[in-house]
Simulated assay, not measured.
Amino acid sequence: MKGKNLRYLSEQQKAEPRHARAGFILLTHFSLPAFTQALDTLVTANLLEAEAFSTTTFSLGGEEVASDLGLVIRPDADLASLDLSAFDLLVVCGGLRTPLRPLAELNRLLQDAARHGLALAGLWNGAWFLGQAGLLGGYRCAIHPEHRAALAETAKASQVTSESYVIDRDRLTAASPSGAFYLTLEWIGTLRGRALVEGIEDILAFEASRYRRVNPTLNVKMTAPLREVVNLMDANLEEPLELDQLADYVGRSRRQVERLFKEQLGTTPQRYYLELRITEGRRLLQHSELTILDVAIACGFVSASHFSKRYTAYFGYPPSKEARLGL
């Protein structure tokens, strides 16, 4: 776990990775949540690794585009000005009410992009436009359920799945906002490595990332009772619960809870709880201006010295030496 925190990102990169560029093509009534999930993920990546990614938005003719939520976005440019050599990924952003009709200019652009070797993506029903341009033959893909049949009819040689997102070689498709988030994360991971992905998760999906931060090598698949205990621990970091209290809350004996932790997480409940609090303390130190005492109290330690002692024993250096990232 010590090698998986944000402090170690720069240490894990042996060679300077190249800057990557993504272009977002906004269609009428595009899904704003799906678009912003993808965009926020890239922006957060840049907070952790400066200028790792750049983004540009386009509309068909450079006009403002109304999203599915009624908010109007002014794009950076129109399709006619898009220089394919300046991008690594093009993303077609559709939505529930985006009309499924051929767009000759978009078709030509996507086909040219494919010939240039760009990765192509579709959000919500954006995959339909990739399929309509003849670019999904032999690929697995994802699309919102409302448009699954339409894509299957348009791109008969593709495999239309019910998954929230699919990355198949150089085609990336997502059926939902959460799918757009994980699709973008995975694309980032292929370019910049797992450490940056985990750093982004620590910020944007920190609830789920807590399980990984405690034991990053473990593919956690917890049964419902154990997950309930862990969720209780997550919700009670400032005032940690006793093991007997946790067991009572989930209707299990103390011995049963200990057995669940040993069998599924390879540790004791007490150790897991302590590691959860310590790693949450590191997250707060890295991403806030809280004092060490404030962090100690927020994570259920009786004093700053107690927190410092545990922190040093776990990470090998005191909390006063922790990097304050992005501040």
Rank of each mutant, 00 (worst) to 15 (best):
K221L: 11
P177Q: 15
V214Y: 01
V250D: 12
G179A: 07
A247Q: 01
I203W: 11
V214R: 02
A174S: 15
G189E: 11
S209R: 01
A174G: 13
Y165H: 12
Q159G: 15
Q256M: 01
I203T: 14
P240D: 12
S176Q: 03
R252T: 05
V250H: 05
E163H: 02
A205M: 09
E239A: 07
A205D: 02
T184Y: 03
I200K: 04
P240Q: 07
S253F: 11
L196A: 10
V220P: 09
S253V: 04
L191Q: 15
Q245P: 13
L226F: 06
V197D: 11
A175C: 03
Y249P: 04
E163N: 03
S162F: 12
N215F: 02
V197A: 01
A247C: 04
G199T: 06
Y165T: 00
D234V: 14
T184H: 01
E238W: 00
Y249C: 12
G193F: 04
M233F: 09
L237M: 10
T161H: 07
R210G: 10
M222P: 01
L204I: 05
L196P: 00
D244C: 08
L260A: 06
P225T: 03
A208M: 04
A195F: 07
A208F: 05
G193V: 03
L232S: 13
L185N: 01
G251H: 01
E258V: 01
E239H: 11
L226E: 10
I167R: 06
E238F: 02
A195S: 15
A208V: 02
F181A: 06
E228A: 10
V214P: 00
Y249V: 09
A180M: 03
L196H: 06
V250I: 05
V250A: 07
R192Q: 08
Q159P: 10
G251A: 05
D170G: 00
R210P: 08
R169F: 06
A174E: 05
D202R: 13
L241V: 14
L232C: 12
Y249H: 14
E186Q: 15
